[in-house]
Simulated scan of single mutants.
Amino acid sequence: MKQVLTALFMLCIFCVSAQEFNKEITTENGLKFLVGQINLEGLQSQPYGKWFQTRYNNYTVDETMASLFKEKLAEYNIKLFLGTWCGDSKRESPRFIKILEAADFPMEQLEIIALDYRKGLYKTSPTGEEKGLNIIKVPTIIFFKDGKEVNRIVESPLETLEEDMAQIVFKKDYVPNYAY
């Protein structure tokens, strides 16, 4: 009986602390968007899957570049801040995910956070993952190593996503758009 109670207690703690993924907001005028932590299933669900899958399928990864930084990239944790309502996020996010997959990036090291669009909540998430990270444009892709930010790609790459990622992981001089 003690083991059953312990198991139930642990299950309750897990359920309470579990992050809700793919939370969807519908505005008064019917606009839908995701907020907070999301995953690939959320991006592939409708109505987001239509733009995500089309842009994912239409993008050709520079395999040479991806294989060049594949090993180094795996040393990083990445946070991708996006807006499912944002044109730049709709363009860059599917490409970025496809590059990560081509580079065999451990996807458990990727955190995707969708930011709000509503007045008063603009570019925030329900659980505040963006706080202290100076997110001014989306998408913002932040590369962390040993818990510290190394660099970021903001809104769009300077060259290509693959080239910018290589610059970051090989610690070359890289100053993102809208550098702070």
Rank of each mutant, 00 (worst) to 15 (best):
E63I: 14
G49L: 03
S125Q: 01
L115I: 05
L8Q: 10
A66M: 10
F14M: 12
E159K: 06
C15S: 14
G120L: 09
M10G: 04
I38R: 07
Y76T: 02
E111L: 11
L110W: 10
A66I: 06
I168E: 02
I142Q: 07
L100E: 01
Y174A: 04
L161C: 05
A166S: 09
K98T: 04
N58C: 05
V4K: 15
F170H: 10
S93W: 00
N39S: 10
L11S: 11
G83W: 00
M165S: 03
Y174P: 06
G49R: 04
F170R: 03
R152C: 00
D104T: 10
E75N: 12
E162K: 01
Q37H: 14
Y117G: 06
T6W: 10
M10H: 00
T127Y: 14
Y48T: 03
K137D: 04
V175P: 00
Q44L: 08
I113P: 01
R118H: 09
K171D: 15
Q3I: 14
F69G: 00
D173N: 08
P157K: 02
K145R: 13
I112Y: 03
T160L: 01
M165L: 07
S156K: 14
G36Q: 07
V154D: 10
S45Q: 10
A179L: 08
M65Q: 14
V154E: 07
T127C: 03
P176A: 12
S125H: 01
F81M: 05
D173W: 02
D116L: 01
Y178R: 11
P94Q: 09
G120H: 07
D88L: 04
Y56F: 13
F69Q: 03
N22Q: 09
Q109V: 05
G87Q: 08
A18C: 15
K70F: 10
I13V: 15
Q19K: 13
S125L: 00
L8K: 11
L110Q: 07
A103N: 06
I136G: 12
T124L: 03
S67D: 15
